[in-house]
């Protein structure tokens, strides 16, 4: 195989596989910019993947079939928003520790999606999934890439984006200026949840075209890491998602080519790469949201 075909193959497989990471980490970026890190991303993705799968699965052969994928995506986004709201209730209103609450949300989403799937479907069933529209990628993938400049614009050029950044950096000052900290954090968490739900929908509808308990397989946690990797900036997060996915497809392609290299190391490659970049990016002048991870209590003296 010539080198050009090799590179084309690696890219044509790697780029579509970056989409779910990109969506989830863009959502997580909104959460973290508002000062909340949501480790429950994986759980929201599981629920999103399940609901997006359920719509085409149950509507097969009905009058609604042409709309099934769309309905599935909407259901996934709605559920993502609701789970984001639930997380906001726990971490913003009740000021629960974010790490623990996030792990709780992860287990809730993962467990409920698996149980409902088992109850209503069970076993293994495929769905037709999303059709490619251009260059082998579906419409949702292009939407995800368009979301990158859109998120950048929202975050840095709109009043709402300024509020989000303010409540994540110095909520007390934002509060003094009349910004409703709790409401803004709720909004950011709901937005993040919607995107995580969409990321899950992409996994089941766009990639695997099926659902299984462990379909997300740790991608929600990688998305959280990619936000740090991307220094809370949508364009850098896009770079991180692409780097990770292309490294993934590259290691698979290397294995397939039969190059003598222990497969255990090949499988590790994408993760090692992210750790290396994180380590070297440590000296970056870009600082994360200063109040990340701290609940805000107006009554508390500091």
């Amino acid at each position: 195989m010539n080198i050009f075909a090799f590179i084309t193959n690696v890219l044509s497989i790697g780029i579509p596989f970056s989409v779910s990471l990109l969506l989830a980490s863009t959502g997580e970026m909104f959460n973290q910019r508002a000062g909340i890190f949501n480790l429950g991303c994986e759980g929201i993705m599981s629920m999103g993947a399940f609901l997006a799968f359920m719509a085409p699965h149950t509507l097969q052969g009905t009058a609604l079939e042409p709309w099934a994928n769309m309905l599935g995506i909407l259901a996934a986004m709605l559920m993502g928003g609701l789970m984001g709201m639930l997380f906001a209730l726990a971490t913003v209103t009740f000021r629960a520790p974010q790490g623990i609450a996030g792990i709780g949300l992860h287990m809730l989403g993962w467990g409920v999606a698996g149980t409902l799937f088992r109850f209503f479907v069970g076993g293994v069933t495929g769905i037709p999934g999303l059709k490619p529209v251009f260059l082998g990628m579906n419409a949702l993938a292009y939407l995800a890439f368009l979301l990158v400049p859109a998120s950048w614009y929202i975050l840095f050029k709109t009043p709402w984006g300024l509020k989000v950044r303010a409540v994540g950096t110095y909520p007390r000052a934002a509060d003094t200026m009349g910004v409703n900290v709790a409401r803004t954090r709720y909004q950011a968490l709901i937005a993040g949840g919607v995107l995580a739900g969409l990321a899950g929908a992409y996994l089941s509808l766009g990639q695997a075209k099926m659902f299984a308990d462990d379909i997300v397989a740790g991608r929600g946690f990688i998305a959280v890491a990619l936000v740090y990797f991307g220094r809370w900036n949508p364009f850098l997060i896009l770079g991180g998602s692409l780097l990770f996915s292309i490294a993934q497809s590259l290691q698979l392609a290397i294995q397939v080519q039969g190059i003598a290299f222990p497969y255990e190391f090949a499988v590790m490659l994408p993760y090692v790469l992210v750790i290396l970049v994180l380590a070297f990016a440590g000296g970056s002048t870009v600082r994360g949201p200063a109040e990340l991870g701290k609940p805000y209590n107006r009554e508390k003296r500091v």
């Binding site: 195989m1 193959n9 044509s12 497989i13 596989f17 996994l203 990639q207 695997a208 099926m210 299984a212 308990d213 462990d214 379909i215 397989a217 991608r219 993934q248 497809s249 698979l252 392609a253 294995q255 397939v256 080519q257 039969g258 497969y263 255990e264 090949a266 499988v267």
Partner: peptide, 25 residues
């Protein structure tokens, strides 16, 4: 062409690997 996903349950990665195999002929 032998290649491994490194996981027993990662369906998405297995699909990615299968596509890679098919593109390699």
């Amino acid at each position: 062409q032998v290649a491994y996903t490194g996981s027993f349950g990662d369906f998405v990665k297995a699909a990615e690997l299968a596509h890679t195999q098919i593109k390699a002929g």
